[in-house]
Simulated assay, not measured.
Amino acid sequence: MIHLKNVEKVYRTSSIETLALSNINLHIQKKEFVSIMGPSGCGKSTLLNIMGLLDAPSQGTMELDGNPVNNFQDKALARLRNEKLGFIFQSFHLINDLSVLDNVEIPLLYRRSSARERRLLAQQALEKVGLSNRMSHFPRQLSGGQKQRVAIARAIVGRPEIILADEPTGNLDSAMGNEILSILQQLNSEGATIVMVTHDEAMAKRTHRLVRLFDGSQVL
């Protein structure tokens, strides 16, 4: 499903060159749940951004469903992100002035879905994460764990094939972190392919496979 071959990422300024990723070769199979671990600054989020089509490799190739995406134009990349990918972030990235239901609907606006369809799909996504009784609340009225569940509902509202999660339990206590991981495991059992960046070894061991990075390279 996701295939990276000889991927390198270099960030350059006028005076500094930083190698973020070096010679990454990684294949994520359909319906896998894969964890990515490594110390801070080792390239985990950069790798996730490349897989999520938010960044492009400096060298090497990235394929999605067997199709090389390196030369895709911005419009085509945006369409793929909206149709195939769901993103979960450590910091939730909810809009405080919108209700929970309106936050979850946001990805569907880019698909030009009807208001009725947006509302129905958002309600279904919130029911799936156990927040059907919080639809009219605002983010400031929620706990950290509830905010993350809203973020998961937003990620899955478009029924993406792939979910990319960047430290989804990083801001939560262990009990709530376990709840969030259980939701991700359930989504995986229903067919979603999941790639999760984490610092938590215990969480990583509950996924199918662990990929370790160190200084931008895979630890083999």
Results as ranks from 00 to 15, higher is better:
K44R: 08
V69N: 00
P68D: 08
P107M: 03
L48I: 02
F92V: 11
G66Y: 02
S45D: 03
R81C: 07
L98P: 00
D102F: 03
R79A: 14
K75G: 06
F72S: 01
P107Q: 10
Q59M: 12
P107T: 10
L94Q: 11
Y110M: 15
I106G: 01
L47W: 00
K44M: 06
V69D: 03
L47Y: 08
M51L: 13
N82M: 05
E63M: 11
R79S: 07
L94P: 03
F89A: 06
H93S: 10
T61A: 03
N49T: 05
S99Y: 02
D65C: 06
L64R: 03
T61V: 12
N67G: 01
L77M: 13
L64Y: 08
R81H: 10
L109W: 15
A78T: 14
D55A: 12
P57E: 02
F87S: 04
N70H: 05
G66K: 06
D65I: 07
D65W: 09
E83L: 07
I106L: 15
E63Q: 10
N103L: 04
K84F: 08
L98M: 15
N103C: 04
N96M: 09
N96K: 15
N71K: 15
L85M: 15
N71F: 12
L64K: 00
L98T: 04
L48D: 02
F87G: 05
L48E: 01
D97H: 13
A56G: 09
R112V: 12
Y110L: 14
D74P: 03
P68Q: 07
D102R: 12
D74A: 14
L101F: 02
L48Y: 04
D65H: 07
E105G: 01
L109A: 12
P107L: 04
